[in-house]
Each structure stands twice: as structure tokens, then as C-alpha cells.
Amino acid sequence: MLTLRDIRKSYRIGPTEVDVLKGVSLDIQQGELVSIMGASGCGKSTLMNIIGLLDRPTSGSFMLDGAEVSYTDDDALSEIRNQRIGFVFQQYFLLSRLTALENVALPLIYRGNTGSDSHDRCMEFLKRVGMDDRAHHRPNELSGGQQQRVAIARALVGNPSLILADEPTGALDTQVGGEIMELFKSLNAEAGITVVIITHDPGIARQCKRVAVMKDGVIVP
């Protein structure tokens, strides 16, 4: 479902050009559970942001479900993110003023869906991650692991075909991290959702069907 060819990304800092991605080529099939590993600063997050359509590559071709997205306009990219991609971040990125339930509802709101079926659907996914009893709590009333569960419910509520998780267990202890990882594995196995996880933890990577290793801006074969 993902086809990246010779993706490059460089930043201009003053007079110097910094090449972060130096020609990444990668294929990920529907239903895969892939982890991306690599040293800090090698460009994993940069790659993830490009895959997630949050950032644009400097050059290269990126096909999502067979369609080239490099030249798609901003509104269409927003729509793809909303409909097909679920994000899970290391820092959870929940909106602090909203309750867990309201956070989970955000992707549906941007779909124009705010009815009672939306409420039921959000509760269903909170239940799925075991957070239904905390639906009306604010993020600051939840532990890190609980916040990440809410964030996962939010990533799932829009029924995406791709979950992108950038160090989802990075801020959690091994046990909670393991539970989160179990959640991803079951989603992948039961719903056939494609899951891409960036991690530094070899234990996590080992649980994935495939591990891609990045080094200095390229994927090591």
C-alpha cells in the first residue's frame, strides 16, 4: 500500500544544506506490521512524517494505495490523513482542555460527524483500549500509559487502514509498553490494519513481522 522511491529530504540551515533523507526506498504491503529502527537522528521521524503526509519530501516519489501523493493539494492531504491514517506519538499529543472522549471524537468532527452515533463510536473505541471508565477525564488526570491508550483510540476511531506510531512506548515503562504493543499486534492481526512502529527497543522490534533498519538517511537492506 506504501511505495517510496528515492525519497530525499534536506533542510537549509543558513548557507548549508543538510540532507536528512538521502534516497529512501521502501515498500509496505497492506496488513504488514513493520518496525523501523535506527540510531537517533538518522531520520526516522522525518520519514514517518512524510509517510503521514504531515511533511513533503524534497524529491522522490511516494505512492499511497497506488496514487502519487507528492503533488496533492493541502485539503486533499488533510482528508487522506483524516480518513486513512491514524497517528500515535511518543508525547501522546492529546488536547489538554478536552476530555478523553472529546479527544477521541476529533477525527470524526473533522469528518463532519458529531451526532450521537459519533459518541457511541468513540465510547466503543475507548472500551477497546480499556479506557471507557475514564471517558470524561482530562489528559492531566491520566497516567502516561492511559493517555497513550486514549491516543490510540483516537487513532483508531476513524477506521484508518494505516497506523503510524513514532516511539509509542518511548515514554512508558516496559510493562505498560508491552501492553500497548499487544494492542497494536491485535489490531494488526484482527482488523488487518497496517501498522508502522518506530522504536529504539529491540524487544518491541522483535515482535514485529518485519524490521526495517535506517542508517544515516537511508534504509539498510
Binding site: G52, L54, D75, S78, E79, R81, Q83, F93, P107, Y110
Partner: peptide
């Protein structure tokens, strides 16, 4: 965050 979740510029 809102943009990542699918908010358009207009939203």
C-alpha cells in the same frame, strides 16, 4: 495536532 487528525486549513 488538529491538522494531523485531518483538520483542513478552513477548519
Amino acid at each position: 495536532i488538529r491538522r494531523a487528525l485531518g483538520a483542513k486549513r478552513g477548519d
